[in-house]
Design a binder for these strands. Structure first.
Lengths: 204, 204
DNA sequence: ATAATAATCAACACGATGTATATTATCGAA
DNA sequence: TTCGATAATATACATCGTGTTGATTATTAT
């Protein structure tokens, strides 16, 4: 299941994934069958089982790919001093890169975060957002001044951000990754932050 | 499928619903079968089909019940002047009642909004929140001062609120409905509102 | 050109589905 | 309490999707 050198393997998996996305645009994951999948992909049903254990395995593999990419982006960001630079999009390069990646994988992200999507994946992504917030953003604030439980605050913000991402994907991604980053962090910095009683450490 | 006078019908449907919730706490909706359902409910498999077309129909009926109750609460609120009174929980009675109802239906709400839940239902609930915001809250503001697209603002807030509700359900509902209303609206009024450029019409 | 291997095809047992029929148990109302 | 109505049961059935197997064909990399 590891190597992908052979053209036939690459081609088959690509068509399976395309059929998968295409089907998820129409029906729920529960109600789609391996038969549906292979018919749309124009491959033999048996061929599917040469690549995946079942449809759940396919979903998992697709999600895993996205998940590890997002983790990589956030981890790369951790070594950067996020508070340097003037423009918010420059100061928060990982968020710009997240939006760029979402744009790249828009077809899959749209269905997996959509009404026929997977709520457990949604939750996993949210947890990554929360971790990133704690590691790369909240470090610049005095947490002792919080008037709201920290978990409730991170839940609020991460849910809001995920919702905005869904909105962005569903409205055709008209704003650029830089614009989205600015919008989100403008609301974050001037909004829930003050509301929750957070006080910036010093600068700005 | 309409009348429920007969005790046997009431009893059977109640046990099916209980088994449904109980199973959703363990496994995903996709992977549970009608057989699972009827075994746990201690009824004959055929009996299930006397009440529901299939497991999807069961899910739909359960969701419909919750949905109409929430709609009723918001609609009742529409006739009240939400800006009267001093305390935020008094000024926004419909949100308190929403939390009260969620508490009442906690078992089902927890699973249906959880990792094994239904994202399409989640989205429907969010749309109701948005509608309520537009009808009962944003009427008190000058929308022309918005610096962010109105849809993006309502998406942000409704997603955040739904996230907080999920958090509340999953942490054992320690805060009272009144406390939750205060927390949410404190963040809303002092947070995203200012951030988005909203200006209050006059008072406060 | 050739050896390796991916994809196809046909067939299989298995389990869940949805339906139908006859029978039993329980209900509400007189 | 009785009795007609009907909900629940037990059983059987055809259908469909699943996951696997073995033999065959087609495509690949070298």
């Amino acid at each position: 299941m590891g190597e992908k050198q052979d053209r036939r393997i690459i081609r088959t998996r690509k068509e399976i994934k395309q059929a998968f996305i295409s089907l998820l645009e129409e029906k729920s994951f529960d109600s789609l069958t391996v038969r549906d999948l292979t018919e749309r992909a124009n491959i033999n049903r048996g061929t599917f089982y040469l690549h995946y254990l079942d449809k759940f395995d396919l979903l998992e593999k697709c999600e895993e790919e996205v998940f590890s990419r997002i983790l990589t982006i956030f981890n790369a960001a951790a070594v950067i001093d996020v508070l340097q630079g003037e423009d918010i999009a420059v100061r928060l390069p990982f968020f710009v890169r997240i939006f760029e990646y979402l744009q790249e994988e828009a077809a899959f992200m749209k269905v997996i975060l959509g009404p026929n999507g997977d709520p457990s994946f949604q939750e996993k992504i949210r947890q990554v957002f929360i971790k990133n917030m704690q590691d790369n953003i909240l470090t610049g604030f005095n947490l002792s001044s919080l008037q709201v439980p920290i978990d409730l605050f991170t839940t609020y913000v991460s849910s809001a951000h995920l919702g905005v991402i869904q909105y962005w994907l569903n409205t055709g991604m008209k704003e650029s990754p830089e614009e989205m980053t600015s919008i989100i962090f403008n609301i974050l910095m001037n909004g829930p932050v003050k509301a929750s009683g957070l006080i910036t450490m010093d600068r700005m």
